[in-house]
């Protein structure tokens, strides 16, 4: 597992039924591109977050395929429809097999 990986998400606490809300997410990760060389001229192996997903009550909101060209500390902003109260689940997939998860509840009404 890469060091110091920490997800951050911003989701409003409340919404009206069917409202479209904006979500921002960021995870601390170096996103080593596999293109850089170390001081001895050896390629530093690629190590990135290669996929990010957001689901709400088991239904998908967005599923992003990520390549090394996404910046350090990958940031995503997108919109979600909120049909009912429930929980957003966020998942980041690391090249090294680690999976980072966090979730945020939202209340409708």
């Amino acid at each position: 597992m890469a060091k110091g990986v920490k997800p951050r998400v911003r989701v409003p606490k409340k919404a009206a039924a069917g409202e479209i809300i904006t979500i921002k997410t960021l995870i601390s990760h170096t996103m080593e591109s596999g293109q850089r060389k170390d001081a001895d001229g050896n390629i530093i192996p690629r190590s990135i977050i290669n996929r990010f997903t957001c689901d709400f009550n088991g239904q998908n909101v967005i599923d992003v395929t990520i390549e090394p060209a996404v910046s350090t500390n990958p940031f995503f902003e997108f919109e979600a429809k909120v049909p009912e109260s429930g929980e957003f689940k966020f998942t980041w997939y690391d090249d090294d097999g680690s999976v980072y998860e966090t979730s945020k509840p939202i209340t409708v009404g």
């Binding site: 909101v61 599923d63 395929t65 940031f75 902003e77 997108f78």
Partner: peptide, 28 residues
């Protein structure tokens, strides 16, 4: 990013609860 050594950057796939077909990110 057509001028990068590897042009692929990211692909946003929208699910049934996508509120808009929109995404922002930061790239190299």
């Amino acid at each position: 990013a057509t001028g990068n050594p590897l042009p692929n950057v990211a692909t946003f796939n929208f699910g049934p609860l996508a509120g808009a077909r929109h995404g922002s990110t930061r790239i190299r």
